[in-house]
């Protein structure tokens, strides 16, 4: 009887350790290939438009770019829906919300005309920093490490 109790206790311990050690701890969402692809596409689209604007400094050309802003909004909505569907993805959700605000700001600046190359370079720098931040986190998730 004593042996049976000891046997049961040992198995209970092994079972408890099994439950404890069998699951991986997840603090942040895993890498998502579609999110990564969509971010890269949006970055390329933005980069192309900002390069085009270089040749049109000082021109009142907002009307010609309305379609770009519409497309970007649609892309960001797609990204937002996908990001919200993934567990523990709050950082990417916040990233996308900030990016939305940045495109609204870009649109407001564009409506008022971009008057110098220096001004455009500041805008480019902000978007580059933002996309590097987004891509850096996606790459780290893919590699599963911090740097």
């Amino acid at each position: 009887m004593k042996k049976l109790v000891l046997f049961k206790k040992r198995w209970l311990l092994v079972l408890s350790l099994g439950i404890l050690f069998s699951c991986k701890v997840t603090l942040i969402s895993e890498y998502d290939e579609i999110t990564d692809k969509k971010i890269t596409e949006l970055q390329e689209k933005t980069s192309t438009v900002l390069s085009q604007l270089e040749d049109e400094i000082g021109k009142d050309n907002y009307e010609n770019y309305k379609k770009f802003y519409q497309e970007v909004r649609a892309d960001l909505n797609t990204l937002e829906i996908r990001a919200n569907a993934i567990d523990k993805n709050q950082i990417t959700i916040n990233h996308i919300a900030i990016l939305k605000s940045s495109y609204d700001t870009l649109e407001s600046l564009h409506k008022q005309k971009i008057n110098s190359l220096e001004e455009l370079n500041i805008i480019k720098s902000a978007f580059n920093t933002s996309f590097i931040a987004l891509v850096k986190l996606q790459m780290a998730k893919k590699q599963g490490k911090t740097n």
């Binding site: 870009l106 600046l109 001004e119 720098s125």
Partner: peptide, 23 residues
């Protein structure tokens, strides 16, 4: 508006740093 863009970009950077920490 330009300052808003710059601040947004820094917020993105700090969110990424937070994510790297969680990883």
């Amino acid at each position: 508006l330009h300052m808003n863009l710059q601040i947004n970009s820094m917020r993105m950077v700090f969110l990424t740093i937070e994510g790297l920490g969680l990883l």
